[in-house]
Design a protein around this nucleic acid. Structure first.
Lengths: 195, 195, 195, 195
DNA sequence: AATGAATGAGATTTCATTCAT
DNA sequence: CATGAATGAAATCTCATTCAT
């Protein structure tokens, strides 16, 4: 029996549903999650706000769907990046993309108050780490290297650093940034070239 | 002394005022800035919510005061840490303190949508960076070292990494953390001992 | 029909909406515009105050709708009055009607601090003046008269005087009123009869 | 015994008291009576708002004092104007002064909701009317004229018209105004010159 | 598949006023 | 004389959500 859907909802495949998710995503990107309300999403989508409750059980559900879709896309992109000839540099480039990174950060913050989101983003972060670590290990093996830094640590470091560069830039703080960028670039180049 | 401050009501030195700032700080630490409303702060402080407007004119003012007080304390503590015999390890220990770091992170996020906060935390971050970079440079000189990594970059890296360790831990993500901790510890030890 | 009005919620045709407009109008007539708050309107209508924001988005919108409805009715009545055999006397009778005149005066005052209302009542006053001036001119022509006083001035004078009679009466001041009424009556009679 | 002062208040002659009345008057002139609150008056005066309650029993008392002072000054000015060689033209000039007229209008509106103000402004209006009517009668007698329009009516008409010219101008409505101005000017000139 | 109607809860903010000092 | 402290009341407005149609 399990837990049956307590409410009849709009079909998963509806075009309208997608429009709502799009609108919510845009809003999060532009103004942060705190700016997302049923009314504002609907307004952006050019629809009535009640539609949100028709398609989603609650605003949280909508958030979750926005996140899930974005996370899937990001994992996809990351997978492709890691498959390139210079996986570390590709990883860095993608991690430095302000768009995606700010988006993910927004959910990290939201997680504080949304149990459901916390689980989802936790799972996502873990998968991302594993994905990256595996690729880094694979790459090292290909080149016949025994890296001093464990793959998972490398993954963590690159994520941390790109995230912070972005976070600080948004605050207008940039002291030390150039030096770090230079360090990272040369390190990654060496690694990708097997030296 | 002539015309008083046009709007400021409660005295700076009031005990009540301090109680309110305490309550707000606690709330931010426990539930994040988004949970702070005049009503909730007052409730926590066991007071009427209007008192907040009596003492602060606006919620933003309260936020700012909470931040400023915490920032000052942190700078103070950091200054002391950097004055120790092993400044880098002390820096790291303080930066890894969940209390302070989560607190600062909360404001970094808040800054996205609060102009006033952005300026304040930007200024704070810059001061912190300069403070640390100067101490790191000083320490290197004392030991007669020429570090490969510029001081400001070292400061940035340590901040980024501690911040991310904390952020991810809150999400239940810890893969790669131990390895990073180990790396950092050994690196800092070497640096502090001049090797 | 595609994207609905981004914010408008309640339908234009709702009965509830009309009840709210009625209540607001009554309140303005009885106690003046300054007495109109969402709570009081709702109370008078026997409804929850949030309904006002459901139907009107803002109190100003409600004010505007009350005004517009009243203005339209007044213009209608004025048009009919001016079509009578004795247009000037009919104009005066209508302008002396305390109900309408006090109502309009209330908005004139409100206009001082409400940009939106200012525009609306400005437009209305202009239309009213033009309507009256045209009728007065027409009437003069019909009677083959060449009036010493320009039609627009006549319209202005009658409006001013009726307005002030009312305003002063409300203050309990009536000295000179009877004499003015007598003057106006005889003047209008002459004009209407073509002497 | 009568009704003794229920509260000890600041002296009538205090300079501080006058500063507060000044500030309130300025505020009414600039932003209308609805903008007058204890806080704003005090702010404008560069004082603490509690002082208002120290010097006046309530805000209404302050309003009343502002009005009384302004009314007395206006009566004074009017008396002087009426003593001139061309009393009617002087009367008109003073009545057309936007400053004073808007100020008085503001109180006429306030009267709707303030019993005390209503009585005060009623009494003032009556005195003003009597003053003007007497002067007009005197002037007619001096010139040996028997005016068709009773003096009180003349006073009423001039007040009404000047008031309305101002009220409409504020709304951006001016149609018919020039013609009226011209009429009034020529009529008053004739009267003043005894033709 | 969609939407008009409604509402309880709560947000920030402002006020007039009192009182003790 | 003057002012810090406090508060009850009310203002406008927004939200998430439900329900009947």
């Amino acid at each position: 029996m399990g837990a049956p859907n307590p409410k009849k909802l709009g079909a998963e495949s509806s075009a309208t549903r997608a429009v709502l998710v799009d609108a919510a995503e845009q809003l999060i990107r532009e103004e942060g999650y705190a700016a997302v309300t049923a009314r504002r999403v609907a307004q952006k989508a050019g629809m009535k706000f009640q539609l949100i409750y028709y398609y989603f059980n609650s605003l949280d559900d909508l958030f979750l769907e926005v996140f899930q879709r974005g996370a899937d896309q990001h994992l996809e992109r990351m997978t492709q990046a890691l498959a390139s000839d210079e996986p570390l540099q590709a990883l860095w480039a993608l991690s430095s993309e302000p768009n995606d990174t700010r988006f993910i950060l927004e959910f990290m913050v939201m997680a504080n108050h949304h149990e459901v989101i916390r689980k989802a983003i936790g799972a996502f972060a873990e998968r991302l780490r594993d994905l990256q670590a595996a690729a880094i290990a694979r790459h090292a093996e290909t080149l016949g290297l025994k890296p001093k830094i464990p793959p998972a640590a490398t993954s963590f470091l690159l994520s941390s650093i790109s995230r912070s560069l972005l976070l600080e830039s948004a605050l207008g703080v940039t002291s030390g940034h150039q030096e770090v960028q230079a360090l990272i670039h040369s390190a990654l180049k060496s690694l990708d070239e097997g030296r």
